[in-house]
Computed example of a mutant assay.
Amino acid sequence: MSSNTSLPVPLQLCYENVSGSCVKAPYSPGPRVILYAVFGCGAVLAVFGNLLVMISILHFKQLHSPTNFLIASLACADFLVGVTVMPFSMVRSVESCWYFGESFCNVHTCCDVAFCYSSLFHLCFISIDRYIAVTDPLVYPTKVTVSVSGICIGISWVLPVVYSGAVFFTGANDDGLEELSSALNCIGGCQTVVNQNWVLIDFLSFFIPTLVMIILYSHIFLVARQQAKKIETTHNKTESSAESYKARVAKRERKAAKTLGITVVAFMISWLPYSIDSLIDAYMGFITPAYIYEICVWCAYYNSAMNPLIYALFYPWFRKAIKLIVSGQVLKDHSATMNLFSE
């Protein structure tokens, strides 16, 4: 005689027969394959896409400019996200377990925070660079030099690394949340809790630079519109060579500002859900379901893979550089002096 009483499903653990192991909540085979494919594609694109950006700018002398050096450094930050953060987060997200040790969990968290904030700082400096280039294109080369760009790059790396190390390696992130942190501290887990003070600092660190970028790019596009109207009204008039040169320079800088403005918008769209969710979570008792949190995290991670796609869509020189790199022509003598601009 059959019984309608169903047997309880035994809990799966990250480490079987290990006391204190985290409970494993894996996806079924179909969704697991799909998630690995989606997350893996993001990581591969972040690594190889940003590697192509760095090689293009650093190899071809025609691309050696303060703005492009900032873009190459930004690509380096996104490349490191693809190498040191995304692959391990992929396994944790799909398997719901951390198999890489407690020490590397701390390193992983620090790299995550440091490289993502480095991207934000780079974008902020790039927006300042574009603001000067569009509003005063003829004086721009004397104001923004390679050495100035180098200082901006140094700040964009040092501050995020120092900040992430000071917060997470010292344990300041979970002050006042020791009980919650202890409850989550099972073997096979890598969940970092951050108290309200540091979450607020994190949010302001995201919000203030983002607000600066919005203000600068709003002014940039306002000036660009005024310049375009001025050029249009004087198009049928006789222009001096100096005025013609100024118009060409202004047009080039506006085009570059438009592309980098799209990069900034993509960054904000990618990171805003995670920033808002973290702030709400800290003040509402960490109520966000795990799947919602993972969606927010991977939206932010995917930003590191988006920038090379944006450059490929809007920068003809980048498309040409990719062809030269993939075909192996960069290995030829004098390849660094090749012309990438169709002018």
Rank of each mutant, 00 (worst) to 15 (best):
K320D: 07
Y301N: 13
W271R: 12
I220L: 02
A257M: 04
I214M: 08
K323Q: 09
H59Q: 06
Y217E: 02
D333Y: 11
A166Y: 12
G40L: 04
R252C: 06
G20D: 08
T233I: 08
F121A: 13
G328D: 04
L340P: 02
M86G: 04
R92I: 02
M268D: 06
A183G: 01
P316I: 05
Y283R: 09
V161E: 03
S6A: 11
I201R: 09
F100D: 02
K24F: 01
L279G: 04
A46K: 08
G189V: 02
A257N: 06
T263C: 15
A25P: 00
T288L: 12
F125L: 10
I155E: 07
Q12S: 11
V23F: 04
I128A: 11
P273K: 05
I71V: 15
I34T: 13
G188S: 07
V18P: 02
A43T: 15
A46P: 03
S3A: 06
V194R: 02
P289C: 03
V199M: 09
V81A: 04
S218Y: 14
W271Y: 14
K255P: 00
L211M: 12
F100K: 01
G165W: 01
R254K: 12
N303I: 00
V91I: 14
W317Y: 04
D112L: 14
F286I: 02
V83Y: 08
K332V: 03
A266M: 10
N339Y: 02
V158C: 10
T170L: 06
S270C: 14
L13A: 08
Y283L: 03
N307H: 12
A46Y: 04
A75F: 06
M90R: 10
V212M: 09
F169I: 07
I220N: 00
A224K: 07
Y293V: 07
M306E: 07
V113D: 09
H219K: 14
S89D: 15
K258A: 10
V158P: 03
I214P: 01
A257L: 06
F121H: 10
D78S: 15
I132W: 00
D78P: 01
E239P: 00
T192A: 09
S147G: 03
I214S: 04
L222E: 11
L45G: 11
N106L: 11
S278W: 04
I71D: 00
V113F: 15
F168V: 08
F104S: 05
V330L: 12
A77L: 02
L63E: 05
S278G: 08
E95G: 06
C152Y: 09
P160N: 04
A46I: 03
A25Y: 14
N106Q: 09
Q62R: 08
H235D: 07
V9N: 08
N197W: 14
V146L: 09
Y27R: 13
C76I: 07
L184M: 11
V223C: 08
G261A: 04
Y117I: 03
G165N: 10
I155A: 12
